[in-house]
Simulated assay, not measured.
Amino acid sequence: MRTLIIDRFEGTYAICEDKDQKFFAIEVSELPEGVREGDVLDVNDAEGTVSINAEATKQRRSKAKKLQDKLFS
């Protein structure tokens, strides 16, 4: 299983980054409904499935929020 983070959307593609800072373009139609920038995705190549890792996404958003609060307060 591979973990990717949605960096941005460009047209019909989601540009995703892995832990090695390599980028991948995945068609939005292949992703779960409701994905957003910053979401953590679990990609199972063997099964051909992509799912949102809600817990990892929540942790990343919380960490980013704390950093913003620290910078701007």
Rank of each mutant, 00 (worst) to 15 (best):
R36G: 00
I26C: 01
F9W: 04
D18H: 07
Q59S: 09
S29M: 10
K19W: 03
L4W: 12
L31V: 02
D69V: 00
N53S: 10
I15A: 01
F23Q: 15
K65V: 01
I5F: 01
S62Y: 09
T49A: 03
R61H: 08
S51M: 06
R2W: 08
K70H: 10
I52T: 10
G11R: 04
D45S: 12
D69F: 05
K65A: 14
L31E: 04
F24D: 06
G38N: 10
E17F: 03
G11D: 11
S62Q: 14
A54M: 09
P32N: 06
V35H: 03
L71R: 14
K22S: 11
D20A: 14
N44P: 03
L67C: 01
I5S: 03
D18V: 03
V28K: 15
E55H: 07
S51P: 00
R2H: 12
E37T: 10
R36L: 13
I6A: 06
L41F: 06
L4M: 04
D69T: 07
S29K: 15
R2N: 14
G38Y: 10
A46M: 09
E27P: 00
A14F: 02
K19H: 10
D39F: 12
T49F: 09
R8K: 15
A25E: 13
T57D: 07
V40N: 02
E27I: 01
G48R: 12
A54F: 09
I26G: 02
D18I: 04
N53I: 00
M1T: 05
K66P: 00
E33P: 00
P32C: 02
A46E: 15
K66M: 09
R60N: 13
F24C: 02
F23M: 12
V43H: 08
I15L: 10
A46I: 05
K22F: 06
D18G: 06
E10Q: 13
E33Y: 02
I26Q: 01
D69S: 14
F23I: 08
I52M: 07
K58M: 09
E17Q: 14
F23E: 14
G48W: 10
G48T: 05
E37R: 13
F24G: 01
F72L: 13
D7V: 05
E10I: 12
R2F: 09
K58W: 04
V40Y: 03
A56R: 15
T3Y: 11
V35Y: 03
I52E: 10
R61G: 00
V43W: 12
I5R: 14
E47S: 11
R36D: 07
S29F: 09
R61D: 04
V28G: 00
A14H: 09
T49M: 06
R36W: 01
K19M: 04
N53E: 04
F24Y: 15
A46Q: 14
E30H: 10
L41C: 07
G48A: 11
T49G: 01
E27F: 07
P32W: 11
T57P: 06
T12L: 08
T57I: 06
G38D: 08
E33H: 10
V50S: 01
K19G: 01
G38R: 11
A46D: 15
D7F: 07
L71K: 13
K63H: 07
A46Y: 06
R8N: 11
A56Q: 15
D7E: 15
Q59V: 14
L31W: 02
R8Y: 02
D18W: 03
Q59L: 14
T49H: 05
C16K: 05
D42K: 12
